[in-house]
Design a protein around this nucleic acid. Sequence first.
DNA 1: CTGTTAGCGCCTTCAG
DNA 2: CTGAAGGCGCTAACAG
Lengths: 341, 341
Amino acid sequence: MPVRTRPTLSDVAREAGVSLATASRAINGSPTRTVRADLRERVLEAAARLEYTPDANAQAMARGQTTSVGLVVHDVADPYFSTIAAGVTAAADDVGLAVTLAETRHDPRREVDLVELLHRQRARAIVLAGGRLGGADRAEELTRAIAGHRRSGGGVALIGQPLPEVPAVALDNSGGAAALARALHDAGHRRFGVIAGPADHLTARHRQAGFREALAELGTAAAPEHVVPSEFSRDGGYAGMTALLPHLGELDVVFAVTDLMAVGAMAAVRDAGLTVPTDVGVAGFDDIPTLRDITPGLTTVRVPLREIGAQALQLALALEQEPRVVVVRGEVVLRDSTARP
Amino acid sequence: MPVRTRPTLSDVAREAGVSLATASRAINGSPTRTVRADLRERVLEAAARLEYTPDANAQAMARGQTTSVGLVVHDVADPYFSTIAAGVTAAADDVGLAVTLAETRHDPRREVDLVELLHRQRARAIVLAGGRLGGADRAEELTRAIAGHRRSGGGVALIGQPLPEVPAVALDNSGGAAALARALHDAGHRRFGVIAGPADHLTARHRQAGFREALAELGTAAAPEHVVPSEFSRDGGYAGMTALLPHLGELDVVFAVTDLMAVGAMAAVRDAGLTVPTDVGVAGFDDIPTLRDITPGLTTVRVPLREIGAQALQLALALEQEPRVVVVRGEVVLRDSTARP
DNA sequence: CTGTTAGCGCCTTCAG
DNA sequence: CTGAAGGCGCTAACAG
């Protein structure tokens, strides 16, 4: 099939026997002007006959405004991010905007690049999900990129760790982890291990720090050898638990800083021929919907990821507002994975 | 902070004391022309000083080609789709394209609308994941929308069920389900139930049909009362298994047409105070990565979703090619959920 | 190698 | 209520 050249609005206008301006007003109803019914009819028919479709790019250019928003995540395949993405997409759809999805693949440099890419596309707003990685350099570059986008009228919102002066939906990671620690303590557990995630990952850091500080206040601090770093993934959880296996006799519960890691940790326990929670309890963080049916049920901190995504988009679009930070608190969910033997 | 007006390429040109064209060539290197080093240097410096960023929309318009592709899924929060999305995004990124994500929310009408939306945005290619729903009307509308996009030079590829004349990565749903049936038969199971999904859902239909046909060939057809329709979700699986509970004594294994449904089905078994696989075996389809660690391990048909997403994008971008259909076969994975008691 | 000049497709004042 | 004309920011012939 030959690539026919697309019909343009002038083609439609000519076909309908009206001017370009009238055709434009008929098809995309101007805010102020109105078109006589019969003319509008003619235009619409002509457009249908020609199979005309407006060019969103040209419209964006003429109007000086696009109809899309950007979403930056580390990895869509991770249920944490895909749930957030669902929230952002739904909220965007509600206001007639399309979502451009970009993945950092856990590379902080790409995060900056993607913000710039999205800025180039003149996204109306950019939502950055996913914990900031990298050191101060990256944070500064990111701040600059964000500032550039905002200065020229684009909105931005962060999910997770806030950054100075930028609207954000912040998870109370340390508070949630602390609440989890207290709940486990209330349930009678006393000896804790932690699979802590990467040292340079802020979310991981806040979660493990909040957990350990709460323990300290309760007078049952986790021993240093019971706190192991790991990758921020299922496999990281598996490896972390494997490292803790020799100490299992000294532990009641191991806290992995994400559900995905906790699942990996549970697999490691099973592969060692042991049982959760009989030999050791396991707790996670996030309450990923897809994982709510695993057995034993995973004790965790529920985070309303979908709502967070939706709210972040709204924050990002509220251009006039002052930078605003909404803090979302998680809710401890005790399940069988930490039942006392 | 005031919304400063964005610097344009002419601002940069003026600042650098060169012509618009030179600035353009210096910044976005023209394929044919080249710019003297010192001039290019001046331009780049001016651009940096002004914090100039090219406007992707304007470039798209001038070049007559955008740098984005569209992806249509039912629901990104569903791990099936998020894994596909990861594949599409990675492949797009490799060739420097951005992905616009659109969700049908399981509404076939929206599917058509989204194709049109993406066409309006002049997406270089559109990947449609997710089984076609709805009847012949919708299929026809969709075919028309797709044809419109292709006629004007855009690529399209489907994932799942093919449509006549459209490139596709087709899952061999019925073949995979048949292989599963044979594998379960080989393992000694004889009495099967099926949680079949929605009647109008093609993927679900092919999977259950393939499964049942293979059983028939093996001489052990599933009784009609052991085949229950359901929603295409975790809750659908739960409800389906609940409906089968009264018949559990007559069944060795229940096949749910997706892993997510299988997980719901397993939860229903547990909630009834029974055990998988002792009281009944459960099998799914997809081999969702996030669910690979559940216990008992879920017997399923592995589908390389990520690769499928990547390949679909490549098919969609290969505009010159003949309509081509790639069939991907699943691989049966037997795990403990169907271990014989 | 550089500059000038048309558009790309559409919206939007501004006249009529 | 309609039409003509300018411009959005950039690229790509076309001259110089």
